[in-house]
């Protein structure tokens, strides 16, 4: 009987398939074929019993997690979607302090930049309620229902372009910064000490 017909092996591969859900189907097939070949080779060529072969491989969920995390990070590093970037940073934030800092940086960046951009637009509709008020003990930036009486609004009609451009720059900085942090943390986590830039995409092989 081929080792792949063994019930435990089939259960193992089935758990792996389930845990890999979310990855492209051809990648799932490729991984299952490779792990299947591993099990066959180990079982046919050594004194390992099938349970020992599966035990040495490790839990299917752990293997799948490594593939999935790697995919999430790859997508996030090429993405501008806040959902993807924050999800990837969240994975690192659960691992250690640097991840938490990176996540806080990104959350602050997204909130501040979208706040600025939104108020830049709202200013057009409610010019009296949006602005930058400075007074002896007052600092107010953004939207307010009752403008403070002891402070003067400094920007006037300039608020929209100034806040819009600043918000846009901050948003770009947040995206680029998050991507760069993800790249660095990915390397640290995997223990490589990469000092030069990342490998150019053009050199990535596509052979299957």
């Amino acid at each position: 009987m081929s080792p792949l017909e063994d019930r435990d092996v089939q259960l193992y591969l089935e758990s792996l398939r389930n845990a890999l859900r979310g990855l492209p189907t051809d990648e799932q097939d490729d991984i299952l074929q490779e792990i299947g070949a591993h099990i066959r080779d180990r079982a046919e060529s050594s004194d390992f019993s099938l349970p020992a072969v599966l035990g040495a491989l490790g839990k299917p969920e752990e293997i799948a997690n490594q593939y999935r995390e790697s995919a999430i990070l790859d997508h996030a590093r090429a993405s501008i979607s806040p959902v993807r970037l924050l999800h990837a940073l969240w994975i690192f934030a659960r691992r250690g302090l640097w991840g938490v800092f990176a996540l806080l940086f990104a959350v602050f960046g997204y909130l501040a930049s979208t706040g600025l951009i939104i108020t830049a637009l709202v200013k057009l509709a409610f010019p009296a309620h949006v602005g930058l008020w400075l007074g002896a003990n007052h600092f107010l930036l953004g939207f307010t229902s009752s403008p403070p009486p002891y402070a003067t609004e400094k920007l006037g009609a300039w608020y929209t372009p100034v806040a819009g451009v600043t918000g846009f720059l901050l948003l770009s900085l947040t995206i680029l910064g998050s991507r760069s942090l993800l790249g660095h943390m990915h390397q640290w986590r995997n223990g490589t000490f990469r000092s030069e830039g990342s490998v150019p995409v053009s050199s990535i092989g596509n052979q299957q």
Binding site: I31, E34, I35, H38, A56, L57, G58, K59, P60, E62, I63, Q66, Y67, S70, N190
Partner: peptide
């Protein structure tokens, strides 16, 4: 765990 080599190779 032997299975960890495969995600590493993939990456």
């Amino acid at each position: 765990a032997e299975g960890t080599i495969y995600p590493i190779l993939s990456r």
